[in-house]
Design a protein around this nucleic acid. Structure first.
Length: 287
DNA sequence: CTCAGCTCCTGCGGGC
DNA sequence: TGCCCGCAGGAGCTGA
């Protein structure tokens, strides 16, 4: 589910809700997600004030006052919801708002000000870990990440250098987080359509001019998706439980058999499988 | 080193 | 209606 825009949406929801707040109690409902949690995770979290919430690639990073950073990954189906516990006013009366624990609510963070953050992940491909903030870059989940696609370093020169001699497809190269990080299956398909590049082309054979268009398309698609609150296919929701709506702007993803949206193109969107992942594209517009 | 294929897990939609 | 199958936004391993 969550690629860069969805994770960014989560970060933007979390930041105002928990920064400066004290973590009072952490409820851990199972020992692991993809990997075991640190055995002392509860103790290491409780008593911290949240200094900052930020994003690196598809990871949410929560900087804590005692010098550690919590690394949070949403995998394919992870979701973060924020509730406010305590008395609330309805039209008729006051009631105590204590949300029930739902299926797959694996970790619950309760803050001193009655803010509750719930991490829910049905497929459990996600992860939560803690790391000394100063050593974050050495962490196994961080150490192999490439550059951020919305940073200044990301440009045609960078792609020319990194894709040179690559025998894999440009689609697979973009999914590989070690060159550019944060892109996933949806936004790679979309960006390739916008830049008119066939996903089947070998990464090393894409011309510089095309790579330039590709960098622009990637930035454009990511920025627009962030502005739309991400994409919700089945289940992505922001921290307030609301759906994103960038899926309405998909040009190719999940549109197999539908008309290509290029003006004057009468071709249908094709679906193929590359490295085990579905690729959607127009074989007329993308060469 | 590089790359394709497999794997973890639950839920959902389509076909019968 | 119900069952079975295939597939899903990620990414670490394995082995060629």
């Amino acid at each position: 589910m969550p690629e860069l825009p969805e994770v960014e949406t989560v970060v933007q929801g979390l930041l105002p809700a928990i920064s400066g707040r004290l973590i009072e109690n952490v409820i851990i409902n199972r020992p692991n997600l993809r990997w075991p949690f640190p055995l002392d995770m509860k103790e290491r979290l409780e008593g911290n004030v949240v200094l900052n919430v930020r994003r690196r690639s598809k990871y949410v990073l929560v900087d804590l006052s005692r010098g550690e950073t919590m690394i949070l990954h949403l995998g394919m189906s992870g979701r973060v919801l924020i509730h406010k516990l305590g008395y609330e006013k309805s039209e008729k009366n006051m009631y105590f708002n204590k949300p029930s624990v739902e299926k797959h609510d694996h970790v619950i963070f309760d803050f001193e000000d009655k803010t509750r953050v719930v991490y829910n992940d049905p497929r459990r491909f996600g992860a939560i870990d803690l790391c000394r903030s100063v050593e974050l870059n050495k962490h196994k989940m961080m150490s192999n990440l490439g550059i951020e696609p919305l940073s200044n370093q990301f440009n045609a020169d960078f792609l020319v250098d990194n894709f040179k001699y690559r025998k894999t497809s440009v689609k697979s190269a973009l999914l590989n987080q070690k060159y550019v990080c944060g892109l996933g299956n949806i936004y790679v398909c979309e960006a390739l359509w916008h830049s008119g590049i066939s996903p089947l082309k070998l990464a090393g054979s894409v011309k510089r001019k095309q790579l330039e268009l590709l960098t622009l398309a990637i930035r454009k698609v990511l920025k627009e998706a962030i502005e739309s609150g991400g994409s919700s296919l089945n289940d992505f929701k922001n921290t307030a439980g609301e759906l994103g709506y960038f899926q309405h702007n998909f040009k190719v993803y999940d549109r197999e058999g539908n008309n290509c949206k290029t003006t004057g193109c009468d071709s249908k969107i094709k679906k193929i499988v590359q490295s085990g992942r579905s690729t959607f594209f127009c074989n007329k517009c993308q060469r």
